[in-house]
Amino acid sequence: MKKHFFIICGCLFFAVLYAITSMADPFVTDVTNRLAEPSQQNLLGTDHLGRDIFSRLLLAGGITVGLSTAIVLVTATIGVLLGTMSGFVYRRLEPIVTKVTDATIIFPDTVLAIVLAGVLGPSIQSLVLAISLIKWTSYTRLVHTLVLQESTKGHVLAARVNGLTKPKIALRHVLPAVCPHVLVVMSLDLGKVILLISAFSFIGLGVQLPFPEWGGMISEGRHYLVTNPMLVFWPALCIVLTIIGSTRLSAKLTRHFQI
């Protein structure tokens, strides 16, 4: 099974490498070759401006997955830090952190993110900032609750009685128990954030032209839904597959950590 996995990964790696080195420039427009059928030069055909769909899908994948990974990593790090500080290391922070997270959580997060992105103006930076501003609260709440649970465990109390300092106990005894839960939620969130980024780009608040983004590509392709449905199909398939991937990753992590 492991051997097959490596063979498949190897084939995929070489296929992607071949595609990247030989594929067309994702930004170059060619109106004489618009809405072309798949060919050797354009593996998935071209869009309404004659740009290569395959190369744009790959670049959009890099942008979407890269941005969502960065957002999830940053928000989870903030959540872990604040949750651990307020729940264990520095309990005086608890009322402030709890009140702020409570105040943020009562708003519907997607609506809040759209409002924030709208206020900040359409750009990648606004998108990252808007999603990060709504996401950190859920991680902080999660970590805070888990830390409170962990801090009553026998080994944490024993560590305190053995004279370990609170930061050291947090690092050695609390966080190793909390992190598996956070990783599972992060893997699930990856899919959610990808969907959110695509939704933002679809309504024009996310990644701006000429950079490709799966949601933006769907938005561009929807005008040709009847005549050329593949313009919508490919980016939609990419979104679906990536979200399924993140869900499966989360399930695997859950099994691995036996949560």
Binding site: G154, H155, L157, A158, R160, L164, R172, P176
Partner: peptide, 27 residues
């Protein structure tokens, strides 16, 4: 206070009742 950390473990040792849960399972 934080300075009491130096007393516990070093000057006062504690043997807990619940010894099975007194160790972190991942250490």
């Amino acid at each position: 206070a934080s300075n009491t950390c130096s007393i516990y473990g070093c000057e006062i040792g504690y043997i807990p009742q619940q010894y099975t849960t007194s160790f972190a399972p991942f250490l």
